[in-house]
């Protein structure tokens, strides 16, 4: 069964090449059940990723981007109540039991986290972690798994792969750890990679190397990639499409180039203007006033309205995510765009 997903506003540059949809997220909602009832964390998130495509999920801390990813990965907190559907390679996975989900996810989804030091096991050798994964998911024998692990490390640019297999995570630099995570993520030939702030903790020259590596992997293996980040400049360089989240909502969605250069939503515009730009002689930045409202204290209607200089009475009602110019935006008073 294949869920029907409305295509993103902007479709690929080469529409004649049909690209299979790998991940489809439809009206995803996630609430946490606590003593007072249900606390909404994410509401109505929809997007899809096709093979060979990188989609960025962008927003500031607390916007719901990481918990959206955890719902897709099947590692949302136990007290979560999830609505909507998540479809992977045409199969709805949102209703699966945790066991079935794990079986599917190990093979078909690879994960890369911000902090490899906590995501990788500290007292198991790197080789053991890799061969365990390969044996469990692909049914390889030990010798075969070891060879494959060495190949993978080699492929992600780790020198002396055989030696590194015997070593431990703490012996590696941050950039090398992240390469090991990438090797693990691609080890079972997944169709989807979910990368949660994979380069945020890295220095800028290393960040550039790791982004290049991820980009190469995506091309070579025709991977669908969900790239979670707070940095819009990384988005513009690296991802074909972007989904901007604010206070648990998707507020803008479209081709990265359009979202970064001509956003329709005032929040997306604000995010771009708040960053000091290169070669820019400004003496003041344009901050977004106030702060992101905490979960449980979202305003009625448009959640960005209290911080928005375009807000008026109409914004007390909740806007829908609609096409405005080249992108989709959830806004009553979208910014004029050139298109």
């Amino acid at each position: 069964m294949t869920a029907h997903i409305a295509p993103l506003a902007a479709d690929p540059v080469s529409p004649n090449i049909e690209r299979r949809t790998v991940l489809a997220v439809e009206n995803l909602g996630l609430s946490l059940r606590n003593a007072d009832g249900l606390l909404p964390i994410v509401t109505d998130v929809s997007f899809s990723i096709r093979e060979g495509e990188a989609v960025a999920l962008v927003g500031e801390s607390g916007c719901g981007k990481s918990i959206t990813a955890s719902a897709i990965m099947g590692i949302a907190p136990d007290n979560s109540v999830i609505t909507g559907t998540i479809t992977l390679n045409g199969k709805v996975i949102s209703g699966l039991s945790p066991k079935d989900r794990r079986k599917l996810c190990g093979r078909h989804m690879g994960f890369i986290f911000q902090e490899p030091m906590t995501a990788l096991h500290p007292t198991l050798s790197i080789g053991r972690q890799m061969t365990d994964t390969l044996r469990h998911n692909l049914g390889l024998g030990q010798a075969e798994a070891t060879n494959r692990a060495a190949e993978l490390l080699d492929r992600v640019g780790i020198p002396r792969a055989r030696d590194i297999l015997k070593g431990y995570v703490h012996e590696l630099s941050g950039g090398m750890r992240q390469r090991v995570m990438i090797a693990l993520a691609i080890s079972c030939g997944p169709s989807l990679i979910i990368a949660d702030e994979p380069t945020t903790a890295l220095d800028v020259t290393i960040q550039a190397q790791v982004l290049d590596l991820l980009d190469d992997m995506r091309r070579e293996m025709n991977l669908a990639m969900l790239f979670i980040t707070h940095d819009l400049e990384v988005v513009g360089d690296f991802c074909e499409k972007a989904v901007v989240m604010y206070a648990g909502d998707v507020v803008e969605r479209g081709l990265s180039a359009d979202v970064v250069q001509a956003p329709a939503h005032p929040y997306a515009r604000g995010l771009i203007d708040a960053v000091p730009a290169h070669d820019d002689g400004r003496t003041r930045l344009t901050p977004i006033l106030g702060t992101v409202p905490p979960v449980g204290q979202w305003p009625e209607g448009c959640r960005f309205a209290p911080r928005c200089n375009r807000a008026d009475d109409q914004c007390r009602a909740r806007p829908a995510l609609e096409r405005h110019g080249p992108t989709d935006a959830r806004c009553w008073h979208p910014l004029e765009t050139m298109a």
């Binding site: 090398m176 800028v204 020259t205 550039a208 400049e233 360089d237 290169h278 070669d279």
Partner: peptide, 29 residues
């Protein structure tokens, strides 16, 4: 505007949002 040291040049070129896909890369760590 006119970085003279190769490291400064590489640092500026590695920054995201700069010069798109054809960034100069530093090898190693």
């Amino acid at each position: 505007g006119a970085p003279a040291h190769p490291y400064t040049q590489a640092l500026l070129a590695s920054a995201p949002g700069k010069a798109g896909g054809q960034r100069a890369r530093l090898k190693g760590e």
